[in-house]
Every structure is written in structure tokens, then in C-alpha cells.
Amino acid sequence: MSHFAFPGVNLAITTPFDAQGHIDYARFEQLIEGYIAAGVHGFVLSSGTGMHVYLSKDESKELVAFGAKVIAGRATVIAQTSALLVEEVVERTVHAKHCGADGVMVLPPFFEGPTDDQGIIDFYSSVSEAGLPIIGYNVPQAVGIEVTPALLQELSKIPNFVSVKDSSGDLAAQASLARTGVPTMNGADPLVPYALFAGAAGLIWGGANMAPKTCVALANAAQAQRWDEVREIWKALAPVMSLIWQGDYVQSVYAGADMMGYGAGNPRRPLARLAADKHQALRDALAPLLEREVATV
């Protein structure tokens, strides 16, 4: 992972909201400082876990500008710049570059966009003109487009296209992407140690909002190829990472982070807070992590 620009834990950080549903920038700064202190290697701003789809364009751009300024080079910065219009993706990407972001994460065209390989290649070629490293996004269950190994090899020929985040949840499919030699990042929380063993170049990890120190310890152990240590750490993480992947992912991350002292308020509407009957199961799954995770934010 040492030759890749985004190794380790790239935290898909939650976006904190106040009681009125507005972005709470004071709290956002506190969270960033807490996660930096916990050792996270990078941040994904305006991530899916950070409710990108429920932020306006201006809110997302302001969030990226603010976050990058607070981080100030102490960790890498990836900004999600996904949008329906390619012109808007380029606009957001140019803005991220001006803010000092190290790269951008971009969904392929979605909601009745092109599904043929050439259409996907043309889309990312347009985004590449903004001049920032691009991380593509493979989440076929959500957008209806699969980044296959053959497509990934073609995308890697585009200037600035450096990686793909795989959130398919299919380890065999992700391993196939990694075998192309193009850096592949894992985005499926229950697969973390297996993906790292299979050659994932880095992690984009929403569940790490709840247990950043433990997640960083696992990534560092994997980078040093201390697989026995990885296995022991994963025993504590596996129950919660499997639980949140079963449904209500964003709501679960917000609730779990709050339980662990990294509260970001409630998710923004139309998402509701996690149902009360699911809280105890989440709390039980997090219990083995409490001793290691002592939030200071």
C-alpha cells in the first residue's frame, strides 16, 4: 500500500447536523480533530455516510472547503463530487482542487445514465479534465452499473483515474478487480480484513466513525502483514460491521458513533434516526470496543 496515495483508513466521515437540521460546522471541526487524534490516514468529505445525496451543491462545496481547511494537510482529503450532470461533477471537482483536496470520489453516471462501457469511459474522461486524482465507485446494487475488471483496465488509461472503490460486497468480484493491478479500495465494511489480504490498496470506511482507533490499528497491522493481530482485532470489529451492513447503514453509523462519543446529531431527512428497537443490538455489538475507544470529542 505504500506506493498508493490513499492507503489505510480513509474515513467516510459523518456530516453533523444541529437540531434544526443545518450543518454544524463547530461540531464538524471537533470531529475532525478527534479522528485525526485517533490516527485516521485520510478523510472522505461529503461521503455517502456523510449524506452527500442529501446535501445541496452549495452545502457540499462549503463542507469540502471547511473540512480541507481544518485538516490542513494532516491527513489526505478525498471529496465526493458525484452529481447527475457531468458539468456539475466537473465544477465540484475543480472546486475540490482549489480547496486543496488530494483526490475525488465519483459515482459513475446514475439514474438512467449510460450503461455501456464507452459511456462510462467518456464520463470519467470528462471529469479527468479537472486535474485531480479520481477514485471511481463500484456499487452496482445502487446505481445499476458494474465496474468489471475489463472496464477498470480501460478506465485506468484515463489521465488522473487512479483507483476504484468497491462497495459491491462481493469479495470474489473485488479480488478480480485487484488482480488487474489497478489499485482497488474496499468500501464494504464486513470485508475489511479479507479485502486487505486479497490486495486492497486502501479502505474507504464509514463504520470507522464508531471505532476509529480500532479500525486504524487493524489497517496498520495489515500494512505490516501482522495477520494474527489483524485477526484478533477483527474479532472485536466483526459483529458491529456485519450488523450495520444488514440495513439502515447510515442511521446505524450515526447512532453507533454517538454511543462511542463521536456524535454527529441525527441524519438529515428523509432519513430518520435509528429505530429504538435496533439500538440495543448495536450497543451490544459495540461493547467489545469500548475499552479501546475512549472518544475525546
Rank of each mutant, 00 (worst) to 15 (best):
H3Y: 01
H3M: 06
A5G: 11
N10D: 08
L11M: 07
A12W: 03
F17V: 03
Q20G: 15
A26I: 02
A26F: 09
F28P: 02
L31T: 08
I32P: 02
Y35C: 03
H41M: 08
H41D: 10
G42Y: 01
F43K: 01
V44P: 00
T49W: 02
T49L: 08
M51F: 09
S56A: 08
E62W: 00
L63R: 08
L63G: 06
F66V: 06
F66P: 04
G67Y: 09
G67F: 07
A68V: 07
A68N: 14
A72P: 06
G73T: 11
G73H: 12
R74V: 11
A75G: 08
A75E: 07
T76K: 15
A79V: 04
T81L: 06
V86K: 13
E87K: 15
E91R: 12
A101V: 02
G103T: 05
G103F: 01
V104I: 13
F110D: 01
G113T: 11
T115D: 03
G119T: 10
I120F: 12
I121P: 05
Y124V: 00
S125T: 15
S126W: 00
V127L: 04
G131K: 11
I135A: 13
Y137E: 01
P140L: 02
E146F: 02
V147T: 15
P149M: 06
A150N: 09
K157E: 12
S163W: 00
D166P: 11
D166S: 09
G169L: 05
D170W: 04
A172D: 13
S176V: 02
D189W: 06
V192S: 05
P193Q: 04
P193L: 03
P193R: 08
G199K: 05
L203H: 04
L203G: 03
I204W: 02
I204K: 01
G207Y: 03
N209V: 13
N209P: 11
T214K: 08
T214A: 14
C215A: 15
A217P: 10
A219L: 10
A221S: 13
A222T: 11
A222E: 04
R231A: 15
L237F: 07
L237I: 13
M241R: 13
L243N: 08
D248T: 03
Y249K: 07
V250N: 12
Q251E: 15
V253L: 14
V253G: 05
A255K: 15
G256N: 14
M260I: 12
G261M: 12
A264M: 09
N266Q: 14
P267H: 14
R269H: 14
R269V: 10
P270N: 14
L274C: 12
A275E: 14
K278F: 07
H279D: 00
L286M: 10
L290S: 11
R292L: 07
E293D: 04
V294W: 06
